[in-house]
Computed example of a mutant assay.
Amino acid sequence: MTGTIEAKSLTLSYGNSIIINNLDLSIPVGEVTILIGSNGCGKSTLLRSIARLLKPSEGSILLDGKNVFKLTNKQVAKELSILPQSPVAPEGLTVLQLVKQGRYPHQSWHSQWSQEDEEIVMNALKSTGVEHLKDKPIEELSGGQRQRAWIAMTLAQNTDIILLDEPTTYLDLTHQIEILDLLYKLNKQQKRTIIMVLHDINLACRYADYIITVRNQTVYKKGKPEDIITKSLVKNVFDLESEIINDPIFGTPMCIPYGKGRGIIKGEAVLNGVASY
């Protein structure tokens, strides 16, 4: 099977600080996988290593069975693309110019810009709904439009695997849903493997086929949202008391937190049958 990603005995460090320790992991092919966990737990670090941006202290990342750090930049860029947190484009760069950058791994001195490149770029613009903005400078776009433009660039790279680090950061709720709907659609229609980091556990449950929770430098639990998201998991991973109910629209797990202040008081009032507020 192509497009497989595995971590074998993986240890990741920044200086002397170990972030991920002796982790083994296999990412489902052709599904939406979402990494969740508390701030600083290492989920973004793990994503960076999968994307070949952070070399392991020990162990390996395997792409189709090959050590990703023994492949060339272009070999990796033809297999997977990554959208980092808060990417920055040069001033004045238009949407079209940005999306064309995704074709860089496919260019060489004997293989210049082709009709196929042009068609892939235009399809990426169309798929992400920014075709009408192609001549606009990136800095003139709204947050949601800008994120769609960056996703279009990753699509133009034409990889089977797309990695995204918190793609909904700084977006309002409407644009968060638009971006996640878009990624879900790309996965279901084009069968691309999508791996992303999200902070919102309820959105993760709604959009993920597979969730990986990171805690204490390794994977705490992994699996389908309905199989692993429990009160106990939320307490152990996020140190938060909660109730887990079914999302009334999608039927996926929904976390209702008590909090540590007003939430506790109101939660106790509800449990005691008090509804005077």
Score class of each variant (00 low, 15 high):
Thr2Asp: 05
Gly3Thr: 04
Ala7Thr: 08
Ser9Gly: 09
Ser13Ile: 01
Asn16Met: 06
Ile20Trp: 09
Asp24Met: 08
Asp24Phe: 06
Leu25Ser: 04
Leu25Glu: 06
Gly30Tyr: 01
Ile34Ser: 07
Leu35Trp: 05
Ile36His: 05
Ile36Ala: 08
Gly40Leu: 07
Leu47Thr: 05
Leu53Asn: 08
Leu54Cys: 02
Glu58Phe: 08
Leu62Tyr: 02
Lys66Cys: 01
Lys66Ser: 04
Asn67Tyr: 00
Asn67Lys: 00
Asn73Pro: 02
Asn73Asp: 05
Lys78Asn: 11
Lys78Ala: 05
Glu91Asp: 12
Glu91Ala: 12
Gln97Asn: 13
Gln97Ser: 10
Leu98Ile: 05
Leu98Gln: 04
Leu98Thr: 13
Gly102His: 11
Trp109Lys: 11
Trp109Tyr: 07
Ser111Met: 11
Ser111Ile: 05
Gln112Tyr: 05
Asp117Gly: 12
Val121Lys: 12
Val121Cys: 12
Met122Thr: 10
Met122His: 13
Asn123Ser: 15
Lys126Ser: 14
Ser127Glu: 15
Gly129Lys: 09
Gly129Ser: 10
Val130Arg: 07
His132Asp: 14
Ile138Met: 15
Glu139Ile: 05
Ser142Cys: 00
Gly144Ala: 04
Gly144Thr: 03
Gln145Tyr: 01
Gln145Glu: 15
Arg146Thr: 09
Gln147Ala: 08
Arg148Met: 07
Trp150Phe: 15
Ala152Leu: 13
Met153Glu: 13
Thr154Arg: 12
Thr154Pro: 13
Ala156Pro: 12
Ala156Asp: 13
Asp160Ser: 13
Ile161Trp: 01
Ile162His: 08
Glu166Thr: 13
Thr169Asn: 15
Leu171Tyr: 04
Leu173Phe: 13
Leu182Trp: 06
Leu182Ile: 10
Tyr184Ile: 00
Leu186Cys: 09
Gln189Tyr: 08
Gln189Gly: 03
Lys191Asp: 07
Arg192Phe: 07
Arg192Glu: 05
Thr193Asp: 02
Ile194Gly: 01
Ile195Gln: 04
Val197Trp: 10
Leu203Val: 11
Leu203Ala: 13
Arg206Ala: 12
Tyr207Met: 08
Val214Glu: 03
Val214Lys: 02
Arg215His: 10
Lys222Met: 15
Gly223Cys: 12
Gly223Arg: 12
Lys224Thr: 04
Pro225Val: 12
Glu226Ser: 15
Ile229Pro: 07
Ile229Asp: 04
Ile229Trp: 01
Lys231Arg: 10
Ser232Glu: 15
Lys235Ser: 05
Ser242Val: 09
Ile245Cys: 03
Ile245Lys: 03
Asp247Asn: 14
Pro248Ser: 01
Thr252Glu: 08
Pro253Val: 02
Met254Thr: 10
Pro257Gln: 07
Tyr258Asn: 02
Arg262Pro: 00
Ile264Phe: 00
Lys266Gln: 10
Glu268His: 08
Glu268Cys: 03
Ala269Cys: 01
Asn272Tyr: 02
Gly273Lys: 00
